[in-house]
Design a binder for these strands. Structure first.
Lengths: 154, 154
DNA sequence: TGACTCATGTCAGTATTCTGACATAGCCTC
DNA sequence: GAGGCTATGTCAGAATACTGACATGAGTCA
């Protein structure tokens, strides 16, 4: 209570720790993806498409935590370089589904391997049970932040 | 193993959850700081200075997870607007310590209040014990990512 | 003392992302 | 069917952060 009245203690704040962990993870991912000529958003887009083929530009933006506009320019370059296709005949209304090409799939394969090594290193100090706890806690944080009615005061 | 051989399952990946939580937190912080005319980096800088007066530009950059150059331009605007001072007579070598002004302190007070409400909402679904577990887990993640020798394969 | 290494502050240019804005298409209600 | 609401794709401009580069100062070691 003594410290709480003044500011937010950065050494114990879960918010600060969250940002620290996320920043460290992003840096580690950038380090392994750079040799492959890929950025984190680039990789995220491909991974999303591999697991959920036909995702729209807006879907991909939400999944990669960037704006529609940013994802749009990324998709244009990915399409130009032959990693994805957006067949016009599959369009429903304004929505243009996106799919990986064989080239996009093989490019993703290398990246997935690299990212998996980072994730394994990140988890190296945690038991299976710890990881389950971490998932539960993080999901709770996200739900509480999204829910407008959430909060201590109601 | 079936899924692991293909890609990284985004629904269970701790890395993805980490990014999701961090992104949600940042969005919530931006939402409450915007009315105060403050960005997240802006706030982080002030909060760091409140808790550790005399921090250098490089220290602040590391603490706010941005580059020295980005923090430098931010400090220039903060100094121009009278939120911080960098007394030349306190310089030791190249290091120029930075301190909050009374105006900076009062500006921070409002922001801290807003950010605290976000953090409390974020933690509303967690017990005290959960929060302790979360801290432990996040610290482990950071340590494993930073340590070059860390990793499953050694 | 001199060379080497490292960290810092800062300038310049580049790159990336975001916000604002607009037209279009689907959905729902009346 | 008409009108309002929402979501999407996209263009343009602004804000933000990053990389590269350079000079300066501290610490180390021969």
């Amino acid at each position: 209570m003594s410290q709480a009245a003044q500011g937010i203690d950065l050494d114990t704040s879960l918010g600060y720790l969250l940002k620290e962990a996320s920043s460290a993870l992003r840096a580690a991912m950038e380090a392994v993806l750079r040799p492959l000529g890929m950025t984190v958003t680039h990789y995220s887009c491909l991974e999303l498409l591999a697991q959920r083929p036909g995702l729209s530009n807006s879907d991909l933006a939400r999944g990669a935590f960037v704006s529609r506009q940013s994802m749009n320019v990324l998709l244009q370059s990915l399409e130009r370089d032959g990693f994805v296709v957006r067949p016009a005949d599959e369009a429903v209304g304004r929505v243009q589904p996106t799919r990986l090409t064989p080239r996009g799939r093989s490019s993703l394969a290398q990246a997935t391997e690299a990212v998996r090594s980072v994730e394994q290193r990140m988890l190296s100090g945690l038991t299976e049970r710890d990881q389950g706890e971490a998932r539960r806690v993080l999901r709770s944080l996200v739900a509480s932040l999204r829910d407008p009615s959430g909060g201590v005061v109601g």
